[in-house]
């Protein structure tokens, strides 16, 4: 199962990137989480034909990416991986929405095409910013940040456990499917009917493991309350980061900067 193994390795790589050091890495996780969430809300809040207005929002991922020393091609590949889903979401827009919205010389562009491209642009922006957030902060710090921002501990602890055991469980699943494939000798084996017991076994093993983990926790005095360290401090840079970007987003959202710049340019040349 190259795909499962590969997916796990990929997650690990994203996690390792978060151990890097840059001005963005050093910011408090809460600052990055709040700013990214605000960015996503702003990008999503546009009407469906918005396209030109969205372009200035590219600044946020581009600047954070540039400041964080992340491998750009890797991040772009991650973003490209979700674009097919975005295309699928807007696939029928050009068919149903044929009202002409713009004319470029001989080509007239319908609203459907504009909304399709807008969906793709928004997906790239939001997913890109989320990936950059994870790659500069790390999943664990994000969970702690969410917790300190008031998300109930029950949820963040669940997320942390999920993240810890996703590696163990996917490895277990990969081993089982590999064993099945090897004995299927390149054929389909018993087809779908063999997957039922396989998934059943995995579930039972997962259950047994959950019990052993619980035992390990109880033995070390766990009584239902998680005590975690609060290490990071919200500093001047963090305030600047949150307030600075929020102001930029609000200005971009309230004024159509692209149109103003466009008007200024055409005014200049006419």
């Amino acid at each position: 199962m190259r795909s499962i193994d590969g997916a796990v390795l990929d997650l690990k790589r994203l996690d390792l990137l978060a151990t890097g050091d840059s001005i963005i890495h050093r910011l408090d996780a809460r600052a990055k989480v709040v700013t990214t969430l605000f960015f996503i809300v702003m990008v999503v809040s546009y009407k469906r034909y918005a396209l030109a207005e969205l372009t200035p929002f590219l600044f946020f991922p581009v600047i954070t990416l540039a400041l964080s020393n992340l491998p750009i091609s890797y991040i772009l590949k991650k973003i490209a991986a979700i674009l097919p889903i975005a295309i699928f979401v807007g696939l029928f827009n050009p068919l149903f929405d044929r009202e002409i919205h713009a004319v470029l010389g001989p080509i007239s562009i319908s609203g459907g095409w504009i909304s399709l491209v807008s969906i793709m642009g928004r997906s790239a922006l939001t997913v890109g910013s989320a990936i950059i957030l994870i790659a500069t902060t790390g999943f664990i710090s994000i969970c702690h940040a969410l917790n300190r921002l008031g998300i109930p501990r029950v949820f963040t602890v669940q997320l942390l456990f999920l993240y810890r055991y996703i590696f163990v469980l996917t490895e277990e699943a990969a081993r089982t499917t590999r064993a099945r494939e090897l004995r299927a000798c390149g054929k389909k084996g018993l087809g779908f009917s063999s997957f039922g017991p396989l998934i059943g076994h995995l579930l039972i093993r997962t259950w047994a493991r959950a019990e052993r983990i619980h035992m390990a926790m109880v033995v070390r005095g766990f009584s239902g309350e998680f005590h975690s360290r609060q290490i990071n401090r919200f500093g001047r840079n963090d305030y600047l980061y949150v307030i600075g970007w929020s102001l930029v987003f609000i200005i971009l959202r309230s004024k159509d900067i692209t149109a103003i710049l466009g008007a200024a340019c055409t005014g200049l040349f006419s």
Binding site: I140, C143, L160, F161, R164, V168, R209, M215, A216, M217
Partner: peptide, 8 residues
Amino acid sequence: DDQLFMPT
């Protein structure tokens, strides 16, 4: 793996 369940 059963004993090490925390993030770090």
